[in-house]
């Protein structure tokens, strides 16, 4: 509770959004919704901010990389105009899922629908922006040259360069060679590239890794302002504390969504005060669920 009230003043819209979300989840037995068809229906009935359809709908996704099966029948939806956080430990499939949404990942079964089109469709290339986990910018160009190049590619104007540099706090480094920047600065340049153009969906793979707390805070404020402009923001992180900045949370482990919830719902349901503990609790529950004899018992505990 302490965390929740500490964070509400910074995000006046949060309480409204959260309460809306919670009410949608009441029919289900707990705040943390285990993914099944029932909860899918409750999300789609709850499409946010005037949009009828979710930004992303994934059905029965099957992906293998090499011999490893990354996803075996994954289904989920991501609402429009909100910050959705995809959280989970390294190697759980976050990046593969991001790549599938952007349409650069080969899929072996199921469908990924983004803004009403199949992921990767031509029409989506100007509507979906993607920032990969490692900074995808040219080391041997200056910050300005990088931004100007990508601006020309996505058809943005020159002012866009100044705007995005300002948004990620890199205005004073525009003339620096990217190779000479720190890791955090490089990833901010890469993030700035994703902000060029006029995307409706921004997919950010671990954008806050390696940044100090002040910068992280500023970036989350930026993501918030994007969402307020109606842009759907999909962010991954393996740092559970970042969960508290999101509107929606998808918690992933070993290629499965183990919870689809809100920050408040996550803490309230697990009876924990920090996201790390909540995640551990969820893992413990998901393991109990896999054992048939314990399933009923676990459900009773949750509803009590």
């Amino acid at each position: 509770m302490g965390l929740q009230s500490a964070q509400s003043p910074g995000h006046p819209d949060r309480s409204a959004l959260t309460s809306g979300r919670e009410s949608a989840f009441h029919p289900v037995e707990c705040q943390v919704t285990w993914w099944d068809n029932g909860s899918m229906a409750s999300v789609s009935g709850n499409a946010a901010q005037g949009h009828d359809s979710p930004a992303v709908t994934i059905r029965d996704l099957f992906i293998r990389r090499g011999r490893t099966v990354v996803f075996d029948g994954l289904s989920l939806q991501i609402p429009r105009g909100q910050i959705t956080g995809l959280l989970g430990p390294s190697g759980c499939g976050k990046t593969t899922l991001m790549r599938a949404v952007v349409g650069v990942q080969k899929i072996h079964g199921g469908t990924v629908e983004v803004l009403g089109e199949p992921a990767g469709a031509r029409a989506l290339r100007s509507l979906v922006a993607y920032d990969t986990q490692t900074a995808s910018v040219y080391d041997d160009l200056t910050v300005r040259q990088n931004l100007n190049y990508f601006a020309r590619i996505v058809g943005a104007d020159r002012e866009a360069t100044e705007r995005v540099a300002h948004e990620v706090g890199m205005t004073s480094n525009l003339r620096s060679l990217v190779a000479n920047l720190s890791g955090g600065q490089r990833s901010r340049v890469s993030l700035a590239v994703a902000l060029l153009g006029d995307p409706e969906l921004i997919v950010l793979d671990e954008p806050t890794v390696g940044l100090d707390p002040t910068l992280r805070q500023e970036l989350w404020m930026l993501f918030r302002s994007l969402a307020q402009r109606g842009i759907t923001v999909l962010v991954t992180s393996h740092v559970m504390d970042e969960a508290l900045h999101c509107d929606r949370l998808l918690l992933m482990r070993e290629g499965k969504i183990i919870a689809d919830t809100t920050p408040t719902g996550l803490l309230k349901d697990t009876g924990t005060t920090n996201p790390d503990a909540a995640f551990l609790e969820l893992i413990a529950r998901s393991e109990q669920r896999l054992e048939p004899g314990h399933g009923k018992h676990a459900a009773q505990q949750e509803s009590s």
Partner: peptide, 13 residues
Amino acid sequence: RSGTLERLMSTTM
């Protein structure tokens, strides 16, 4: 390898 090609391939290029 740097990811810039993947980034370009996700745009209208």
